[in-house]
Write a protein that binds this DNA or RNA. Sequence first.
DNA 1: ACGTCGCCCACAT
DNA 2: TGGGCGACGT
Length: 766
Amino acid sequence: MGIQGLLPLLKSIHRPTELKKFSGETLGVDAYGWLHRGAISCAIELAQGKPTRKYVDFAMNRVRMLKHFGVTPYLVFDGDFLPSKAATEASRSKRREDGKKLGLELLKAGKPSQAHQELQKAIDVTPEMARHLIEALKKANIPYVVAPYEADAQLVYLERQGITSGIISEDSDLLVFGAKRLITKLDQYGQCVEVNRRDFNACREVSFIGWDDRLFRQMAILSGCDYLDSIPSLGLKTAHRLLRKHKTVERIIRTLRFEGKHRIPADYLALFHQAEQTFLYQWAFCPTTKQLVNLTTLPPDLSPDQLSFIGSFVEPQLAQRIAVGDINPITKQEIVIPAPPSPRKRTASTAHRGSIMQSQSPRDTPKKPIDAYFKDYHRKPLAEMDPNCFHVNPGRVTNEGTQPIVFPLPRPYVDGADLSPPRTYLNGDRRSPRVLRRRTEPISNLLAGNGRSLASGSRRRTGGLEAGASHHPGNAIAGINPRPPKKARLCDDVGLRLSAEEKSKFFSPSGSKAQTARKGEGYLMSDDSIEEALKELPDVEGWSKQPDRRRTIAVFQGESGTLNNGENASSGSSADLAREILGTVIPGTPPKSALGRFSYIPNALPHDSRPTRTATRQGSISSMRSSLISLTPMSTSSSQPSTTRTTPPTQATPQLTPLQQLERKAVSRGKESPTSKLVVPRAPKRSSLGRMSLDSIPVNPAFVPLPPVDVAELEALNRPVGSEDLLVPESETEELEGPGLDNTVLTAKKASRRTMNLSQYRFTLS
DNA sequence: ACGTCGCCCACAT
DNA sequence: TGGGCGACGT
């Protein structure tokens, strides 16, 4: 795994979000997790050497889901193992083999369940498997790249180059590599958690104020990472404290040795530096220049020769072929696919592990120019997205809070084309895939000639997403998707239980009817708007947490209770209900009934079980909602259907995220001069007024119904901001401060700010 | 009292 | 496998 405990340490800056928020963006995806999860669904077949490609379906379902949300995935595959890792990997590989044998034996013994369990652990994601997925990606015109070494470095490189604007991964190592926006815990419904590097200063578990990337990286390494064994009893907190106190690793080690409390290897410092350099300079493939580059430009006094542990340089020609997937990054031989052309599941299977041959079959690889794969990512207009997406997320229902949450989900993103059976094998297990492949390397390895390696095991399991996106023209775009009607669901779910979801959330086999309904709705947007509103809730309040969502759900539930089941999506009464709700949400036409529901919802809602925030929220919720609804003129959204994304992302506006805002506060509180940052509030730049208005409202922003998708706004919000300092506190800031925050201290300030902001907004907005 | 480490439970399949 | 919770050690 990456850095154990890192994400929990950053918990206060986790921003529960929805994938939809990233609509219009290209996000890097660690393909390993998806492949691994997909492989789990067919672990037995793989172990038996059967020609299955179910794992491709799994990954492609996720791809569709992303597309459904308007997100362009840029898949990044792992390449070769770092030198030091080779040995480790070999032993691991053997372990897998043993596990496989055990599993097969169990299978023969008539214990399929146990067999599968064992085989899952023995899953090995091979370059051939990656290649199969790549073939599917090519057909779907999805950008991808095979990293020369670790996908982590490649993902961060792409993000730094602006090729992607965020990274979907479960590996906390990415933050150590320098990822700016890490999107984790993505589930099949599009729910996820965003961790922004910029929010670090707002971290409440430990203070990162005054810290730079280097210190953060050192803290992580010091506590133990994939490239360096940890020092017993020295975790993140301690590493953080030590760094704060002594500033340099050298001093820390010297002190620790002096104290004699920890046992520190003689070569610890050397290994430490190797680990540090591995995070800094690991090789990545530059899609633009088509050659290997160091993640971070090497300083003049450093040459790749001195960094044997980051792997060796690969000639551009070869690197390029590896990058597109034609060559096995490990063996450096061509990957030959037996007979992939037929889309059906049953194509020839690749031998589990070694189907690397020398001859390449022409048909297998389309002869597109390599560039083609790197360059075009198409973005999907929101319009294409399926409007009806609400549905309950069963998983989250019980999740942290325990309360059921309802969300808008895109369901069937089904494109007809590639999908095999719409079945979603949704999430495979969540076991961390990467671990299998990579692991932390023992220090000894590092020392040993290579330096170190990196085997980072990561826990990557990307959240599941099963849905497919239907953007393709051929299919019926959004309307076509056969998914359970969102509306119905909302109602149902809300009212009923989350279970409503049923098996295929994204693809409902019979979904056609639902589709029609959606399209019909002029107001589809309404759905979207609702979704937005829902989404917002979480964001706003909580950027803190998910409980918010639940509430939301709860609200709906109250209503839904009356409603019918979600089954008849389009036609059902539930649908009507949904409409009503939507209407309420939507600015222009807020049905009273809807409002009423919202208002009373609070009551209905099961209160947040969570101790801290609950009280506040609940009390205010109803009022907030009503107020929000009435107050917020979401004009922006109302005018246009959510489905259409008209506005191009306006990026100029630096938007502070709630976390960032907190950060500022923290900073201001802290020593650093906050003034410039905090003071600067300027007129909101963002395109969407609606949002601002929302923010400005004293009420908890979470409850404000958002307008249908305001693409520009979303983008602006999400867009990486230039310098944090320069950013002006915006509406979002307020959100941060909203009830969602646990921090009591901040709360007071927040409240005050909101008010302030509101005034500002009003001026500006009006 | 805090932090780390180990055990138990769970999620999703 | 990962997260949460409880116990032990500093």
